[in-house]
Nucleic acid binder design. Structure first.
Lengths: 376, 376
DNA sequence: GCGCGTTGTGCAATCGTTAGCATAGATTTT
DNA sequence: AAAATCTATGCTAACGATTGCACAACGCGC
């Protein structure tokens, strides 16, 4: 025999590599089920997927065998054939803002409802690395959900080139992809109306990260509405995207001479507003006694004492659901063919206790003309 | 000809299904590269993976072609052969606690450093559904990182049966798997020492979710240390895992007659402690003037005004890193073969302004015997 | 001048799943 | 009763990547 004749070529490497990096031991496959059932693998596949052509008898035998063996189909192999992975890439913004944590939770749940799983590509501040973009392609994600300003246009181009649909949540679209966001202008106008009707005249805006469309829209919407209503141009105070940034802005506001100091502040994110309130109070100012503070987002922590923030709540669940549906539609039709939409959802006012209320009821649908009843 | 002879069998279904669900169009594959390079697919594979046997000339030609075509290997296909997906399942606890958001961020970054990607299986409160456990198997995750109390023992058994290593972070292991956590007892003792040395005698613990080992360990560690030091048994106040739960606990404490009311409170999580502080202050009590409050976790929001919480900071990055390394070791050796460890990492005290300080320096390494110097 | 060792590539099997087509019996139709 | 039609199943070729082995071409020593 040739026991040792053909073997000694390169026995060392494979022999050493195999034992540890071996494949998962003994998980049931279509093939193994087929063997024990005495049928072909294709029959097992059809039986388990509910193909009507398989006799009830054989199907019963196979499903019994499958559950007994704890069989689970290998989605990766299926993806190879079907061209769909069921994977959705998720790029998450700075999680220090609880808004993104809440978004994450919704995304996981709603994606699961739709039979998809999320591949976490990035979380936190900073731009996404090239390795991340690569993973997006390597794992053949069907689409990508982005809720961060930091998706480089290069990454977007790569998605476009590879026919990966892209949906931005809480951001406007870049070159390629759809977007779902809250109607930031409308929300800002709602808050402006509220503050003006309550009699505030020296307004300020604590701005967000300059790179985010969300922050810009809120700032502009607020200012333009105030201007249209005949009010003075609000003071712009540089903020950011964290409690610390809001706190710093609040300190600067508190340090102003009382005569110039704003009597109402719109912080473009709840987490910022919380920082502003904390700084004002630490400086001995009362909120809403001396200064009214309002925010926007609707994070749950801001709804609690000691903030009880008056804010516009983003319809988070609806936003994520809409985003996923857009994504799935894009997957169905092919990213390039699908129309690229921009969806705006209206937020709802949540009255807290951080801002003075208008004495004469609530102007829930105020128009600029009616906003300043006695501003003549 | 047989133009219409063989065709009309079942033309409707496949013809209708194809156009929309078609595979990703025209992405480069090993095969397509091989064709344009005029070599075999195996040669392309070897060239790109740096096999020394490929001539430098051919390799240069192939790599040039690959970058030009924007080639990315299909990891799913590779997984089929190698038996390793590079995917790690992530089960995340209630994200309303910012601690988990911070953990998420670390996990993504550190996993990427190790060449792994995270498949988000679950986020939020509530037990994980069966569909989630199924996804874990379907996508052939190499291992699973769990930071929630809610992984059912059934899910753990499924992982064990399928040779999927399991690592718990911030939780003790169930039947199967390793665990990494902060040394909760040591941390609780550190805080107990601090409170006792500061002269507090009427202590209280705001407890966590009864189902979590972390909460139990902190509560027990604190109480046993106090008892060993000769102090009175702390008052146990039911808490939970949210600001709201802490707030409710704080309200109950504030409602007690001043003579019985605790003068120091240990809340077993920072988010709870924040709620406690807010409730006490809303009731007119000063923190730390009337009541000292300490927490544990080290979330960044608790370090800011108005809380400036004294707490024990969990070494989050080290915990996640250690967890991932344990997981990778388990993957390497096979889950069942790998030793199942329990790793405890020591937390560090962060002195805020929410608790009265001992007058005589800090007892950073207090032993029970030395904890109550004048407690005779 | 022929065998042998190197070096560089190609071939083919494999991973687990799906789907088009073929086919063996069983049943119906004429 | 032969032919046509079903029904239930098997066979086989993909999907994209990896890898053991075969093999061609080359240079070398005896």
């Amino acid at each position: 025999m040739d026991e040792a004749a053909a073997a000694p070529r390169r026995p060392a490497r494979p022999a050493a590599a195999r034992p540890s990096s071996g494949r998962a031991t003994g998980r049931a496959t279509l093939g193994s089920l087929a063997q024990s059932a005495g049928v072909a693998a294709s029959t097992v596949s059809r039986a388990l997927r509910g193909d009507a052509r398989i006799s009830t008898e054989v199907r019963a035998r196979i499903t019994a065998l499958a559950t007994e063996a704890g069989y689970t189909p290998n989605i990766l192999a299926r993806t190879l054939v079907l061209g769909r992975s069921g994977l959705i890439g998720l790029v998450l913004g700075p999680v220090e803002n609880p808004f993104y944590a809440e978004l994450l939770q919704q995304a996981v749940r709603l994606a699961a409802d739709r039979g998809c799983r999320l591949l976490l590509l990035h979380a936190g501040p900073g731009p996404i690395e090239d390795a991340t973009t690569e993973a997006l392609l390597q794992y053949r994600v069907d689409g990508c959900l982005v809720s961060s300003a930091e998706l480089s246009s290069r990454a977007a181009a790569i998605c476009a080139a590879n026919n990966v649909p892209l949906v931005m949540i809480n951001r406007v679209a870049r070159e390629h992809g759809s977007a779902v966001s809250c109607d930031n202008r409308a929300g800002a106008e709602l808050l402006a109306t509220l503050l003006l009707e309550a009699g505030h005249r020296r307004l300020a805006v604590v701005t967000g990260n300059a790179a985010t469309s969300t922050g810009r829209e809120r700032t502009e919407g607020f200012c333009q509405f105030v201007a249209a209503a005949g009010g003075d141009m609000p003071l712009l105070v540089t903020g950011g995207a964290s409690h610390a940034a809001g706190f710093a802005a609040g300190q600067r506001i508190a340090a102003m001479p009382a005569a110039e100091r704003p009597d109402a502040v719109f912080a473009v994110a709840d987490i910022l507003a919380m920082g502003v309130i904390d700084a004002l109070r630490e400086a001995g100012l009362a909120v809403p006694g001396d200064v009214s503070v309002v925010g926007m987002d609707g994070i749950s922590l801001a709804d609690r004492p000691p903030y009880r923030l008056t804010t516009v709540v983003q319809p988070l669940q609806a936003m994520v659901a809409r985003g996923l549906d857009l994504l799935l539609a894009g997957i169905e039709q092919g990213a390039v063919a699908a129309p690229q939409e921009r969806v705006l959802l209206r937020g709802t006012l949540r009255l807290g206790a951080s801002a003075r209320l208008p004495e004469s009821g609530l102007p829930l649908t105020g128009s600029p003309a009616a906003a300043l009843p006695a501003a003549e």
